[in-house]
């Protein structure tokens, strides 16, 4: 699974992206966030407050219930501030 991070989430995780293989029971966005957070370090710091985290799966906004698989691109980022 390809993960990409933006803005302060990227800074806290400490990298712009990576390829990870979460355990088989991680099949939703919500489960992925919980699993990442449990990895500790920068992940725990970045995901401390999940209300400030937005997720996109294959470049579409996704809620915690959305299904994910090994071929998906999952992006984690703070609420957007463009315009």
């Amino acid at each position: 699974m390809k993960l990409v991070y933006f803005a302060w989430l990227r800074e806290r995780v400490g990298k712009a992206g990576e390829t990870l293989t979460p355990p088989n029971d991680v099949t939703t966005v919500g489960a992925l966030l919980d699993w990442l957070k449990a990895q500790g370090g920068g992940y725990a710091e970045a995901l401390k407050d999940l209300s400030a985290v937005r997720v996109a799966v294959n470049q579409e906004y996704a809620g915690p219930e959305v299904q994910i698989g090994p071929n998906d691109e999952v992006a984690l980022f703070p609420p957007v501030t463009g315009g």
């Binding site: 933006f6 803005a7 906004y61 703070p78 957007v80």
Partner: peptide, 29 residues
């Protein structure tokens, strides 16, 4: 303009005295 402020994946980082700060999203937007 309203929708691109809340949907388009852009993030602003301000740079000034005291360093760099990520702009927080506004509830008013």
């Amino acid at each position: 303009v309203d929708w691109l402020k809340t949907k388009a994946p852009f993030w602003k980082q301000e740079c000034g005295p005291g360093g760099e700060t990520w702009v927080a999203a506004k509830a008013s937007d």
